[in-house]
Amino acid sequence: MRVELTVNGEPQVADDVWEGESLLYVLRERLGLPGAKNACEQGECGSCTVYLDGTVVCACLVAAGQAEGAEVVTVEGLADGDALDPVQRAFLDAGAVQCGFCTPGLVVAVHDLLARTPDPAEADVREALAGNLCRCTGYEHILAAVRLAAERGGEGRS
């Protein structure tokens, strides 16, 4: 089947999509956007977190057909060329990155959290990120990145 959707502001068409194919597969394998990571295919780890019509989802759990006509934003859509999104900048400055495989999903999840709650309490941050597994950092520098991004508010891209 054919799936038409908007990804990072650009109209995209995916052909030959098979029954049961996930949005994650379409993004990674058909549209050349490998930023969202495939780490568990069960919606357990959050590495494939993207926006679907403004709501964050695990792209591995969304059937491609469900994304027909939808607006999708992936980690690749957050930076403006070399100008990083403030969340990405905060991840760098706080040392929230090690192997980086969970990072794209976390960056999108934090972007969403701060868009909804610009100054979240620590417990809310921990809860919001509980669906994003990280095996390297112990989460602490990630939580620091969230605080840093929140402190800086929506300050411009850097």
Binding site: G35, K37, L84, L92, G100
Partner: peptide
């Protein structure tokens, strides 16, 4: 010192090409 390095920047942008990418 603790400078952010090239791989960090690629990782936050989602542009680092891991094996499966």
């Amino acid at each position: 010192t603790s400078p952010a390095h090239h791989d960090f920047v690629d990782k936050v942008k989602g542009s680092l090409m891991y094996a499966a990418d």
